[in-house]
C-alpha cells in the first residue's frame, strides 16, 4: 500500500480517538457555553465533561422527593425554577415536617462561577453541596446511604443511572455528579441587561440612570457581569438576636469574618424575594431603603457602606428600574429546567 495513504489513515484514527476522548458527548457545546465577555468558570469541566444523559438524571433527582427522609421534600421545594430557583415568599426556608431553617434559600444561578456555596461559604465545591441539604435535619433529614438504598429499590433509577454512567451501582459520587451537572446548566445570561451589553437592545432613560447609579454605588460588591463578587461582606443589617447568625465567621472562626455573608447575585432579583440571608426584606423598595438609611454599624461593616448610600427618591426608583432589567425570562421559563416525567 501507498505509504502516504497509511500515514493518512493513521492520523485520521489518532485524531478521531483524541476527539472522542476530549468531547465525549457531541452536544457539549450546547449544554454549556461561556457567555461573551464572561470570566472562565470556577468549576473544572475537564474532570468530567457535561453529558446530556447525566444532566437528565440530575434533573429527575432534583425534582424527586425520594431524596428526603419522608419522601415529601425535593430540591425544587426550596429552589423553584420560576422564581430563580429560590423559596419564594419564605423568609426562612423550611424542610421536612415543617421544620424551619435559619436562612433564606439562595438562588441557583450561574453556579459554575461560584467559589463558595451557602450564605456562609460552608460548602467549598458544587459537587459536595447537595450533601448538606439532603442530610440536614431541618431540610431533607436523610442519610446518604439510605437515599442510595431507596434509589436502588426504585423502579426508575437503576436504569437511569445505567444509562447515564454505564453501570447501575448507584454510588454517592454518581448521585452528586448528576445533581451537579444539572445545576451547572442553570445559566442566566439573557436578561435585558445582557442584551444591552451585547448591543441588541437599549436601556430606557430611567434604566440608564439606574445603571449609572448602580455602577457607582453597588457594583463594587455586585460585580458585573455575574452581579456578585462571590466574596463575603457585612452589609449593615441590624443583628437579629433571635438568630444571632455569625455568617462566615462561624466557618472560619476568625472574628473579622463575623456577620459577613456571601454577596448574592442580583440576576433575576425581581423574582427572588424575600431578600437578604434571613429573608427580612419583602420588596426591592425595602432593600434600597436599607442601603440608603438603614445601615447599622455592626462589627466588620463593609468599608464601602460606612456612610450609607445617599439617594434621592427619584434615584431609588431608577435603581429599581435597572434591577428589573436583570430579569431573564428565558432562564425563568426554560422548559429544560422544569420538572419532567420521562
Amino acid at each position: 500500500m501507498n505509504k502516504n495513504l497509511l500515514l493518512f489513515i493513521f492520523f485520521i484514527g489518532i485524531s478521531s480517538l483524541l476527539c472522542s476522548v476530549k468531547f465525549k458527548p457531541n452536544d457539549e457545546i450546547h449544554l454549556f457555553s461561556i457567555p461573551e465577555n464572561w470570566p472562565i468558570p470556577v468549576y473544572d469541566f475537564n474532570k468530567m465533561p457535561l453529558d446530556s444523559k447525566i444532566i437528565d438524571l440530575g434533573r429527575h433527582l432534583f425534582y424527586d422527593p425520594i431524596l428526603s427522609l419522608d419522601n415529601s421534600v425535593s430540591c425544587s421545594s426550596c429552589h423553584l425554577s420560576f422564581t430563580a430557583f429560590t423559596h419564594v415568599d419564605h423568609a426562612l426556608s423550611h424542610g421536612i415536617g415543617d421544620r424551619i431553617g435559619t436562612r433564606n434559600s439562595p438562588v441557583l444561578i450561574n453556579l459554575a462561577w461560584n467559589k463558595h456555596f451557602m450564605w456562609d461559604g460552608a460548602i467549598n465545591h458544587l459537587e459536595v453541596q447537595a450533601i448538606a441539604p439532603i442530610t440536614h435535619p431541618s431540610e431533607m433529614g436523610e442519610d446518604l446511604l439510605n437515599v442510595l438504598a431507596k434509589l436502588k429499590q426504585s423502579k426508575k433509577y437503576p436504569s437511569k443511572f445505567f444509562h447515564a454512567f454505564g453501570d447501575s451501582t448507584i454510588s454517592s459520587k454518581q448521585l452528586l455528579l448528576a445533581l451537579t451537572q444539572f445545576q451547572l446548566t442553570l445559566v442566566s445570561a439573557n436578561s435585558k441587561y445582557d442584551k444591552v451589553k451585547r448591543k441588541e437592545e437599549i436601556f430606557t432613560k430611567q434604566e440608564k440612570s439606574g445603571y449609572k447609579l448602580f455602577q457607582k454605588h453597588c457594583a463594587s460588591c455586585h460585580t458585573e457581569p455575574l452581579l456578585t463578587s462571590g466574596e463575603f461582606e457585612n452589609n449593615g443589617l441590624p443583628i437579629d438576636n433571635t438568630l444571632n447568625d455569625l455568617g462566615r465567621g462561624k466557618i472560619t472562626q476568625n472574628p473579622s469574618d463575623n456577620y459577613t455573608f456571601k454577596v448574592p447575585t442580583l440576576r433575576n432579583i425581581e423574582f427572588s424575594f424575600p431578600y437578604m440571608h434571613d429573608g427580612r426584606f419583602k420588596s426591592l423598595n425595602e432593600v434600597i431603603e436599607h442601603y440608603s438609611s438603614g445601615i447599622s454599624h455592626t462589627p466588620n461593616l463593609s468599608s464601602k457602606l460606612k456612610n450609607g448610600i445617599n439617594l434621592t427618591s427619584n434615584q431609588k426608583v431608577d435603581i429599581i428600574a435597572f434591577l428589573l432589567t436583570l430579569t431573564d425570562k428565558e432562564f425563568l421559563f426554560n422548559p429544560d429546567y422544569q420538572f419532567t416525567r420521562d
Partner: peptide, 24 residues
C-alpha cells in the same frame, strides 16, 4: 483533596468521615 469535589472509594462521603454541613 478537601476542596476538589466528590470522590469515591475510601473518600466516599458515606464512609462517615465527611462533614456534610461544612465541607471537609
Amino acid at each position: 483533596t478537601n476542596v476538589s469535589g466528590i470522590y469515591s472509594g475510601d473518600l466516599d462521603p458515606t464512609k462517615g468521615m465527611y462533614w456534610a454541613w461544612q465541607s471537609g
